[in-house]
Amino acid sequence: MAERQAGPALETRPRPEETVSLMHIGDIQDTRILNPEGEELGDLTDIAIDRETGRIIYAVLSYGGILGFGEKHFAIPWGAVRTPPGERVFVVDVDKRRLESAPGFARDAMPREGDWSLVRTLPP
């Protein structure tokens, strides 16, 4: 009876032969972000989620500063964030010098969308 009532919800579960790649917030928060050259850009400290769709819109990159003072925050579009298999880092194609000269945003004034102008190569 319960299965009949659940109907489509049960159909969305992965089949035993399918794999699902999930991350927990604890896997994401405070993870190092590197660029493809291996330069450390900072840490992923937060994510912005669209309330209507449930999709991650961007990752918050905290760059620079010491002990939280003088940090700049950048909205990196989630589509530009790569996760190398088996590693606990994220890779984003951003030039470190670009972050030094870009203004970033204040933590109490998060932008509505990610900033694609920071990303050197756009996803396909």
Rank of each mutant, 00 (worst) to 15 (best):
V60W: 07
G70L: 03
A102F: 10
A109C: 02
R107Q: 07
I28A: 11
E40H: 03
G86Q: 01
R98A: 15
E52S: 04
L61E: 00
P16I: 08
E18G: 04
L67G: 04
V92I: 06
R88C: 07
G68R: 03
G38V: 13
V91Y: 02
Q29H: 12
S62F: 00
S62Q: 01
F69C: 08
Q29T: 10
G68V: 05
E18F: 05
A48K: 14
R97G: 13
D30G: 08
F74Y: 12
L22R: 11
M110L: 06
G65I: 04
V81T: 01
D95S: 14
T83P: 03
T45M: 01
L99K: 09
G70K: 07
E71K: 15
G26T: 09
S21T: 14
D43W: 13
L67F: 07
T45L: 02
I56S: 00
V60F: 10
E87W: 13
D108P: 00
P36N: 12
F69I: 15
E39L: 10
G104T: 00
P14A: 06
D43S: 13
G54F: 03
D50M: 01
V92G: 05
L44D: 09
R97F: 14
P77F: 07
I76F: 03
K96E: 03
Y58Q: 07
I47P: 00
L61R: 06
P85S: 10
K72G: 06
M110Y: 05
I25Y: 15
E17K: 09
L67I: 07
A75E: 04
I76M: 06
W78L: 02
V89G: 05
D93M: 11
W78M: 05
T45C: 02
R98L: 15
G104F: 00
S62Y: 00
R51W: 06
M23C: 09
R82N: 02
T45H: 01
S62C: 01
G64D: 09
Y58T: 09
V60D: 12
V89F: 12
D46L: 03
I28L: 15
G38S: 14
R112Y: 07
G68W: 02
E17A: 08
R112W: 05
R88Y: 07
H73M: 08
L41K: 01
L41I: 05
V81N: 00
F69S: 12
D27F: 09
A106W: 09
I76E: 05
L67S: 08
P84V: 06
R32P: 06
R88A: 14
R55D: 14
E11G: 13
T12L: 15
A9H: 14
D108K: 05
E11Y: 10
F69P: 03
A102T: 13
E40K: 06
G7M: 10
G64A: 11
P8T: 12
V89I: 15
M23H: 12
A106H: 12
E18Y: 04
V89P: 05
E17I: 04
R107L: 14
V60C: 11
D95E: 15
Y58F: 14
A48C: 13
A109W: 01
I57L: 13
E40N: 06
P103Y: 00
D30W: 11
R32E: 15
A102G: 11
R32S: 13
R82I: 03
H73E: 08
P14Y: 07
T31G: 05
A48L: 13
R82Y: 02
A102I: 08
I33R: 04
N35A: 10
V60N: 07
M23S: 13
